[in-house]
Structure formats: C-alpha cells, structure tokens
Amino acid sequence: MQDGFSVSVQEADFDAGAEIARLVAGREDIGATASFIGYVRADKVHAAAAEKVVAMTLEHYPGMTEQALTDIVEAAQGRWPLVAVRVIHRVGRLEPGAQIVFVAVAAAHRGEAFAACEFIMDYLKTRAPFWKKEETPAGGHWVEARESDDQATARWAGR
C-alpha cells in the first residue's frame, strides 16, 4: 500500500491516540482526521434470549482479510483525496468493553475524512471476512449478519 496507508489484523489491543498521532506526525497537509472505534457490547441484540454476552471470539480468513481491508482502503482513496488511513481489526477472544476495530482517516478537509471513515466501516462490515461468535452462560452461537449492514454498504453505490 501507499505510504501512510496501512491495515492490521491482530490479537493485541490498540491505542487510538497513538495511532492518530503516528498518522499525522511530520505532515503539514492534514487539516482533519476522523476516526471510529468499535467495542464489544454486553447486551444482546441478535436474539430474543436475555442472556448477557460474556465474551465474543472473532474468527477471520488469514490472508484474505488483509487483502479485503486493503481493497476497501484503496476504494476509499479512489473516491476522496486522502492523506493517510489506518485500519486495525482485532481477532481472538474479546470481553465486553474491549475495542474491536479502529479506522482513522486523515485528509485536508473534514468532509472527506468523515465520509471515508464511514465508507470504510460500512464496507468492512459486509466485505471483510470476519465472523463473531458470542459466548453466553447458555452456550455459544454465531452472530447473524444484519440486513441493515448490507443496506449501509449499498447506499454508497449510487454516490
């Protein structure tokens, strides 16, 4: 990938502030950064059962995952003039409150930074090969994909 643009799939946690600081370090052409962090939520939204999620395990497709994230970032670069992008997605077992995903976009102006950050997250949700398995006191189950995520991705097609 082009200098300033990178993706990582890792078990380790990340420091959002440090990541953004690295993105803008030594640059004078950045007027804005926009960033997103996704977290593990304890409540239950995908099923009627009222059990709390005690942890979730993120599985991925090594190799394809990195390629898919790279393709998504490059698609964003094709749409907006971006200066730098950092994407981190964690895998393995994560407990409620843990950070799962980080996207930061640096650009000359806020408009493209906001838009590209949302675009990258929308595509990540439907195109990057990650799967969540929720662990509850009653057992484990795979999270079902949501149609609203497909709709969020599809709305970019016409823009």
């Binding site: 991925h60 995903v101 990540l124 079902e144 994909a145």
Partner: peptide
C-alpha cells in the same frame, strides 16, 4: 476455494 456465512466483523 472458501465457503463461509455472511461476514459479521466490525
């Protein structure tokens, strides 16, 4: 060739 369910990351 990989077969899998719809993805649920993020």
């Amino acid at each position: 060739i990989a077969f899998f369910p719809p993805v649920t990351g993020g």
